[in-house]
């Protein structure tokens, strides 16, 4: 069984899990990995990697401005805005 670093994964997912939740999530992940291991037992040596299940190429869009922007509407659901900005708890580099 692969090592699962639950602290690392919850940090990447920005989830604050308590001990009970961690144990439950760990069990779920272990079962998922069993399934993945099962899939990996199939020999895919002669199969080209597939990025997308549809056998089609991207549809391209002409370079034109087509979107109408209603900032007031879009910001109506935001917890905090000021002079057009969204405000969030401070993040610093």
């Amino acid at each position: 069984m692969a090592d699962i670093d639950i602290a690392h994964l919850s940090r990447l997912a920005q989830l604050a899990l308590d001990d009970g939740e961690r144990a439950r999530v760990l069990q779920d992940l272990e079962r998922i990995i069993v399934m993945v291991d099962q899939m990996q037992s199939i020999d895919t040596g002669g199969v080209a990697p597939l990025a997308h299940p549809l056998d089609a190429g991207a549809t391209l869009r002409p370079d034109q401005v087509t979107e109408e922007i209603d900032r007031e509407l879009y910001q109506a659901g935001a917890p905090a805005t000021e002079r057009g900005f969204y405000l969030v708890p401070r993040v610093v580099d």
Binding site: E82, V88, P89
Partner: peptide, 9 residues
């Protein structure tokens, strides 16, 4: 721009 907050554009 705003004390304790980050403004996003």
């Amino acid at each position: 721009a705003y004390p304790g907050l980050t403004a996003i554009d």
